[in-house]
Design a binder for these strands. Structure first.
Lengths: 250, 250
DNA sequence: CGATTCATTGAGAGGCTTCAATCAGCGTGG
DNA sequence: CCACGCTGATTGAAGCCTCTCAATGAATCG
């Protein structure tokens, strides 16, 4: 999705080219690369949202710290993602590099100006925000109604899908983040994540290939994993009965 | 469904007035009123997002039904809220009336056109989406790290704040929705909500005034409730130490 | 007044967390 | 080169919170 992969020094320097661009990513194409080493912060929740960023390489986590000091990770960001479009002056969350990260920066002022002018760009921005909203909804569903096993399976499948989309279908995936990150993202403890992972291995659903801290995982039985994720649409076997709960629709 | 009753004939008929409007709400001002009785659906998750709605009176719940038939309520909508701006062709969730609801409808096509044209309206729409996003983030934090008591206190406080904003500061609030709705919104069961409510009464934090199914609640000790909500910013007493967790920022 | 719906309360069970110890990989320094 | 320490992951045991199942209570409506 949203290609525009690595436009290493395109020769185009014409400013009006912006108007021919079909992608939001083009806005960043003349910005210099920046690098973040693992663990470094990109911005904090309280910061003025002065810049917008395009991720070129690596993984970021976006999160909030709550009163008792715990951390809630609300999402991960990967290459081709754009971050910082949280409207309203201030970022809604902090962002840190999980791995080493390469990115480009654009001032919000220029980003907003470009989007305002272009009839091509505006729908793209809406689509982006829409995706973010949909992801937030999915996460709410996950957090409010799934158990540890379902959460982990959902996470593994989502990660697999994303990596398959960007680099061809595969049965193997890499988890750039550590167990603690996964735990904070799924609303679990690190121990539960670890135990559940072992349980999945025991069931033959997955296989842990990695030896280092950066884990690689093979999905042995994708279908089983999908069933265990708990958002199976297997309305095929049971009679169509849409309104079962919700009560007062008599 | 959606009997288009009571078109209360506002006197203003000037079409060009639209361009002077400063508010998104103005877009709806010439639309006829519609009514929903409690429990009736406004739209479903799978529907084409053909319309946008302005709530004038009453309460709506927006939710998704997951595979096992359970319901996850992702939000409630109140007067002056606008619903249906879920970009991307299809609604992200279903919407049902909690109470009797009065609203106005506008086609997405016209809504989008108006927003696209007006430099006044666009920032408003962004602000709206931004609020929705912030609310989703808060809900994720609530669901992934708060216990039953903290969730209920947060909910009561949020409800109090909203009602205080719309009708003067007060210590009393009304819960238009039933216990099952609250439970599905907070990711709990109806029994836990009930028990926690009783516990709060026992602590003297709140008081239940209502006798009917539609409950009225008095906040006896707002400060206590805020403490129990768990998003207390009491960094005032402890030394400023922003980076305690998150690990690898050595 | 009985039937229905919604809320409350109780008892038991289960899943996740907490606390704690062990294991594995990796870099550093002797 | 190996010992040591550090970090991150795994495993174990006990406890707590919430869910599940079940019964009762309260209010509305025919």
């Amino acid at each position: 999705m949203l290609s525009t992969t690595q436009n290493y020094e395109s020769g185009t320097t014409a400013l009006h080219a912006v108007h021919h661009q079909t992608s939001l990513h083009s806005l960043f194409c003349k910005q210099p690369f920046e690098h973040l080493t693992a663990g470094k912060a990109l911005f904090f929740e309280s910061d003025d949202a002065v810049d917008v960023f395009e991720i070129l390489e690596g993984t970021l986590r976006i999160f909030r710290i709550i009163a008792d000091g715990r951390r809630v990770i609300t999402g991960f960001l990967y290459p081709n993602d754009i971050v910082g479009i949280s409207l309203g002056g201030r970022y809604l969350y902090s962002a840190e590099a999980v791995t080493s990260v390469t990115l480009r920066r654009l001032s919000r002022r220029r980003f907003d100006a470009a989007v305002t002018e272009s009839d091509h760009l505006r729908p793209q921005l809406f689509a982006l925000v829409s995706d973010e909203m949909a992801a937030a909804q999915d996460q709410m569903v996950l957090l409010s109604s799934k158990n540890a096993e379902e959460r982990l399976c959902s996470f593994l499948l989502a990660t697999l899908r994303r990596q398959a989309a960007s680099s061809g279908n595969r049965t193997t995936l890499e988890l750039p983040m550590g167990r603690q990150d996964i735990a904070d993202y799924l609303g679990l403890t690190i121990e539960t994540v670890s135990r559940t992972m072992t349980k999945l291995v025991g069931k033959g659903a997955i296989q842990i290939d990695g030896v280092a801290a950066r884990n690689a995982i093979t999905i042995c039985r994708p279908v089983l994993l999908a069933q265990m994720a708990g958002d199976e649409d297997d309305r095929s076997r049971e009679p169509r009965l849409t309104i079962v709960r919700g009560g007062r629709s008599h």
